[in-house]
C-alpha cells in the first residue's frame, strides 16, 4: 500500500486499519476458525486428519460449492435465488429421464443438456425480475414451487433408480482418472472460472458495482438490468450443472432431490462473508464457507454427536458468522476518521 502516513496518524486509525484488514480479508477469519475446528476435532477423533476423510469432505461439498458460487453472484447484486433447489430437482429429473432412454449418449451431452435446461429456468427468473419488476425473493419463491411442481408433473411421482442409469454416467462424478474425483475437479474448475469472471472481466466487476450502488450504475454506463438478468441465468446454469452431478453421485433422481438446498447455499455464502445487502463477496470466502459447513457435518459424525444436531450447528454457525461480522464492522465505523 502506498499510503504515506503523516506523523500525526493516531493509534486509532491503525486499529481501524487492522479491522479493515479483517473485513477485507474475511478469508483469514474463517481459515482460523476452520483450523481451530480441525485441531479440536482431531484431538477427539484422530481419523479426521486422513486423506480418505479429506476426500470424503471434498466430495460432499463439491455440489454445494458450485451452487453457492452461483448464489453468491446473485447475492452480490442484492438479489437472492431461492429456486436453485427446485432447478436441481427439475433438471436432475429431466436429465435422468433422457439418460435412461438413451444409455449410449455421451456423458458430456448430458452435462450440456443439464446446463442448458438450467439456464432456461434461470432466464425465466431473470425475466420476471428485470422485466416484470417482481422482487427477487418473491419471484424465486414462486418459481421454487413452480419448478418443484413441474418435477412431480414431469415424473408422475416416479423415481429414477440406480439400476436405470448407465455406469459411465454414474462414474461422471466419482471417477478418479486425474487422482481426485471428477466432481471435485469440476468444482475446482468452476471456482476458477467464477473467480476469473468476477475479478478479471468488466462484466464481473459490473456485478459488484450494481450490487454496491444500483442507483449509480447508470452514471457509470453500466446496464443494470442486463447484469441482473445475467446472474440469474448463470445461477440456473450452474444449478443445472450441479443437478447432473447430483444424480450421478447419488445415482437416483427423486421428486424431492435438492429440497432445502437453497438455504444451504445461502448459508455457505453468508458464512463465507457474502453480504445480503449486496456488493460484497469473494470466491475464496465462499469456498471456505462451504468447506466449513462440510467439515462441521463430517466432524459431528466422527466425534459421535448425533447427526440430528448437525442442522442446529449449521444454523448456529450462520448466526455466529453474521454477528461477528456486524461486530467488526461497527468497530470499524467507530474508529473511522
Amino acid at each position: 500500500m502506498q499510503n504515506s502516513t503523516p506523523a500525526t496518524q493516531s493509534i486509532r486509525s491503525s486499529l481501524s486499519n487492522l479491522l479493515w484488514t479483517l473485513v477485507r480479508y474475511r478469508e483469514a477469519g474463517i481459515s482460523i476458525f476452520i483450523l481451530l475446528l480441525v485441531f479440536v476435532v482431531t484431538l477427539r477423533a484422530p481419523s479426521f486428519l486422513t486423506m480418505d476423510n479429506f476426500n470424503d469432505i471434498l466430495l460432499n461439498i463439491s455440489i454445494l460449492a458450485i451452487v453457492a458460487l452461483a448464489q453468491t453472484m446473485v447475492l452480490i447484486t442484492h438479489g437472492i435465488d431461492l429456486s436453485v433447489s427446485a432447478v436441481i430437482g427439475l433438471v436432475g429429473m429431466m436429465v435422468a429421464f433422457v439418460v435412461k432412454q438413451n444409455p449410449e449418449m455421451p456423458v458430456i451431452l448430458a452435462v450440456l443438456l443439464g446446463m442448458t435446461l438450467g439456464a432456461v429456468l434461470g432466464s425465466f427468473n431473470g425475466l420476471i425480475i428485470t422485466r416484470g419488476n417482481v422482487p427477487p425473493i418473491i419471484a424465486t419463491l414462486g418459481t421454487l414451487s413452480i419448478y418443484r411442481g413441474l418435477v412431480f408433473f414431469y415424473s408422475q411421482g416416479t423415481w429414477i433408480n440406480s439400476f436405470e442409469l448407465p455406469k459411465n454416467f454414474k462414474m461422471l462424478s466419482k471417477g478418479t482418472p486425474l487422482g481426485l474425483p471428477n466432481m471435485v475437479i469440476i468444482a475446482i474448475l468452476v471456482a476458477l472460472a467464477v473467480y476469473y469472471f468476477l475479478n478479471h472481466t468488466r462484466t464481473g466487476r459490473d456485478i459488484y458495482a450494481v450490487g454496491t450502488n444500483p442507483d449509480a450504475a447508470p452514471f457509470a454506463g453500466i446496464r443494470k438490468e442486463r447484469i441482473i438478468f445475467l446472474v440469474y441465468v448463470l445461477s440456473g446454469l450452474m444449478a443445472g450443472l450441479a443437478a447432473v452431478l447430483w444424480i450421478s453421485r447419488f445415482e437416483s433422481a427423486q421428486t424431492n432431490t435438492g429440497a432445502g438446498f437453497e438455504l444451504q447455499t445461502v448459508a455457505a455464502s453468508v458464512v463465507g462473508g457474502v453480504s445480503t445487502a449486496g456488493g460484497v463477496g469473494t470466491v475464496p470466502g465462499v469456498l471456505l464457507g462451504a468447506l466449513l459447513l462440510g467439515i462441521i457435518q463430517n466432524s459431528l459424525t466422527l466425534i459421535r454427536i448425533s447427526p440430528f444436531w448437525q442442522l442446529a450447528a449449521q444454523g448456529l454457525l450462520i448466526l455466529i458468522a453474521v454477528i461477528s461480522d456486524k461486530w467488526i464492522l461497527s468497530r470499524v465505523e467507530r474508529t473511522k476518521k
Binding site: 468488466r202 466487476r205 459490473d206 459488484y208 458495482a209 450490487g211 454496491t212 450502488n213 449509480a216 457509470a220 454506463g221 453500466i222 456488493g279 460484497v280
Partner: peptide
C-alpha cells in the same frame, strides 16, 4: 461512487 469498490476501480468502473 460504489462503496464496496476501491478508489482506483471507482475511477475506471465500467
Amino acid at each position: 461512487l460504489f462503496p464496496d469498490l476501491d478508489v482506483a476501480e471507482n475511477i475506471f468502473v465500467g
